[in-house]
């Protein structure tokens, strides 16, 4: 399996050929057809590098139907490869697929015969979907489909192999050029009314934080009374959660009611500006963890 690491497609193909021939030679009839192997290798050489091994294995899997590769030997090959770590370990997807392959073996062995085919097809479709997703993210997969295929195939009779192969041989997803996807804007807005706060943002349902005291009355006029009237703790808690999801976001729109007292507006800005209990940002913009220090004050209700 270490041959898969070869950066040279032709060499890789030859190594695969040698491996497959030795594997097939060790089995009883029916054996792999040399012509099928050659066809597979030719197709692989003509394909983009990322798809080569996949195509080889798809063809060989089909060509070697009924050989010992589909039986216990396949299982041993997979488990040994994992044990040797003689596989690509640079991708969590790879490890997942290896584990998934052996899981499939176990799953199928537990199923009654009449349910194996449907389960295998479903599972194979899911595996394929997951692999395409990983490829779209930039992962260069190769052996995953093979391992899945042989794992699935062990539980199937030869007449059902075509269903699996049809899935495996669908065109693979084209890996897109790396792009920088702009993060979704948070559009955080906090309305301050005589009944409390209402927090709205792009991806969450509005959060209402009612006054802690009826009518948000501030008496006597000191900062403790202000903080006792409005749910500033709740406001900061919501702000911190939103900041966790959008760490780069710094903007907030504050919409105070026209009759609101200045001190409440300022304290709201203070609360939304930073979390004193958090670590200070590297740029020194905030003394604690910066939350949303850039404020747009909207005109609000009259």
């Amino acid at each position: 399996m270490s041959a898969l690491r070869s950066p040279f497609p032709a060499l890789r193909s030859l190594l695969w050929l040698a491996w497959m021939l030795s594997a097939c030679a060790a089995t009883s009839a029916p054996t792999c057809d040399d012509a099928e192997i050659i066809t597979a290798l030719a197709a692989a050489d003509a394909a983009p590098a990322d798809n080569q091994v996949r195509i080889v294995m798809g063809w060989l899997d089909l060509a070697c139907t009924g050989t010992e590769l589909r039986g216990e030997r396949a299982s041993v090959e997979i488990r040994e490869a994992i044990a040797r770590e003689d596989v690509r370990k640079d991708s969590s997807a790879w490890n997942t697929a290896c584990i998934g392959g052996t899981d499939v073996l176990d799953e199928l062995s537990d199923l009654p015969d009449e349910k194996r085919a449907a389960h295998a097809v479903d599972r194979c479709g899911l595996e394929r979907l997951g692999i395409d997703t990983e490829i779209a993210r930039g992962w260069q997969g190769d052996l995953v489909l093979y391992i899945t295929a042989v794992g699935l195939a062990q539980g199937l009779d030869a007449s059902r192999q075509g269903m699996i192969m049809d899935i495996l041989r669908r065109p693979v997803a084209v890996r897109p050029e790396p792009t920088t996807v702009p993060p979704e804007e948070l559009n955080l807005a906090v309305a301050i009314t005589p009944s409390g706060f209402r927090v709205t943002a792009s991806e969450v349902d509005p959060v209402d934080l009612p006054c802690k005291q009826k009518g948000c009355t501030i008496e006597p006029r000191d900062i403790q009374s202000v903080r006792a009237a409005y749910d500033f703790e709740g406001l900061r808690r919501v702000a911190k959660k939103l900041k966790d999801r959008h760490p780069a976001e710094k903007n907030v729109i504050i919409v105070p009611h026209g009759d609101l007292e200045y001190v409440v507006v300022v304290e709201s800005m203070n609360v939304l500006r930073e979390d004193p209990s958090g670590p200070a940002d590297a740029d020194g913009e905030c003394e604690g963890r910066c939350l949303f220090p850039y404020v747009v004050l909207a005109g609000g209700a009259p």
């Binding site: 900062i223 729109i253 919409v255 300022v266 800005m269 203070n270 500006r273 220090p293 850039y294 404020v295 747009v296 004050l297 909207a298 005109g299 609000g300 009259p302």
Partner: peptide
């Protein structure tokens, strides 16, 4: 005319 927006780079504090 409402709502009207004012862009503020807020540095806040009490007294």
């Amino acid at each position: 005319m409402r709502p009207m927006f004012l862009i503020l780079w807020a540095n806040l504090g009490f007294a």
